[in-house]
């Protein structure tokens, strides 16, 4: 498009005006992010290399001592493993459930409004209350699930889901899946709406089964978008804190101790802020390392299209 003539007339002034608008409009965001992300990062680096407790920071330079101790003397590496395992598993389970539910919902014409409301509620629920709701269901005394299992005679004694080493993590994953599958449903539903119908119709005219069309035609088309959804969910799941706090407090033992909770404990329960800063930095690096392959795969699929 040709440039409007007015833009060149007195262009010095308009260039200056544009510059000042650009700066005045973006500066608050840049300052905001500097306060929320930039300053903490610098502060954490300083804390991580010093002896610091909550009351008094920067008591002296200690080199890599905090990092060494985080890796050798604390439960940190185990908690990072837990966090990654948790994030990858719940995200995959939620993507599968959410996609299937979105496929079903996209075939339903009537009653969409009610279905949408029911799907929306878990997503809106404050995570602390999600924890409370699931605690009520899974609790050994008075929990709904134990009540049913006891009444039907399947068990003789109530199961303590959150006190059991093998069951505590799956129980948290269940609560997390309850809360976040709805988001995946909403996103996948929109992705499916964006698929052009002609390709699917052509395949149907060739006599392909609906299921086959989905696996061979639709799924490859929406794969990059699904991967973005997976990436978003993994990033969010790595931040999980509230559910562990309300449901298990990291226990039993360290069975459900995930990185965010371990860092929180180190900083606000043991007051070793220097150690917590070292843990935080290592966790941040881990988060980028875990999410990077997903980003690369996504870019690869986008290019191939």
């Amino acid at each position: 498009m040709a440039k409007p003539p007015i833009a060149s007339f007195g262009s010095n002034r308009s260039v200056n005006q544009r510059r000042s608008a650009e700066w005045s409009m973006t500066l608050p965001l840049i300052v905001g992010l500097a306060i929320f992300a930039g300053y903490p990062l610098v502060y954490l680096v300083l804390l991580a290399f010093t002896r610091s407790d909550l009351g008094q920071q920067f008591q002296g330079f200690v080199g890599f001592e905090n990092f060494d101790w985080a890796l050798s003397g604390t439960n940190f590496s185990g908690s990072v493993g837990h966090a990654i395992l948790f994030a990858l598993i719940v995200s995959l389970a939620q993507l599968a459930l959410g996609l299937y539910l979105a496929v079903i919902l996209s075939k339903i014409v009537r009653g969409g409004r009610w279905l949408r409301t029911i799907v929306l509620l878990p997503l809106m629920t404050p995570p602390v209350m999600v924890g409370i709701a699931w605690k009520l269901i899974l609790n050994p005394s008075g929990g709904w699930l134990n009540g049913i299992l006891l009444r039907t005679g399947l068990i003789d004694n109530p199961i303590s889901f959150f006190g059991n080493h093998a069951l505590a993590f799956p129980a948290i994953m269940l609560a997390d899946t309850w809360q976040w599958t709805p988001l995946i449903v909403i996103l996948c539903f929109a992705i499916l709406q964006g698929v052009p119908h002609d390709v699917e119709e052509a395949a149907a005219l060739d006599g392909a089964y609906p299921k086959r069309i989905f696996w061979t035609v639709t799924l490859p088309m929406i794969a990059p978008a699904l991967l973005s959804v997976y990436l978003l969910r993994v990033i969010m799941a790595l931040k999980t804190f509230d559910l562990v706090y309300t449901l298990t407090f990291g226990g039993p033992g360290n069975a459900t101790n995930i990185a965010t909770f371990e860092i929180w404990k180190t900083a606000l329960r043991e007051f070793d802020v220097g150690l917590a800063a070292a843990q935080t930095l290592m966790f941040a690096i881990t988060v980028s390392v875990v999410t990077l392959p997903i980003v690369l795969l996504h870019n690869h699929l986008e290019k191939r299209r």
Binding site: F36, A37, P40, L44, L47, K239, W264, A267, A276, A284
Partner: peptide
């Protein structure tokens, strides 16, 4: 800054 876990900002803030 969205990808970074909020626990990073907790102590400095």
């Amino acid at each position: 800054s969205y990808a970074a876990p909020p626990i990073i900002a907790l102590i400095p803030l």
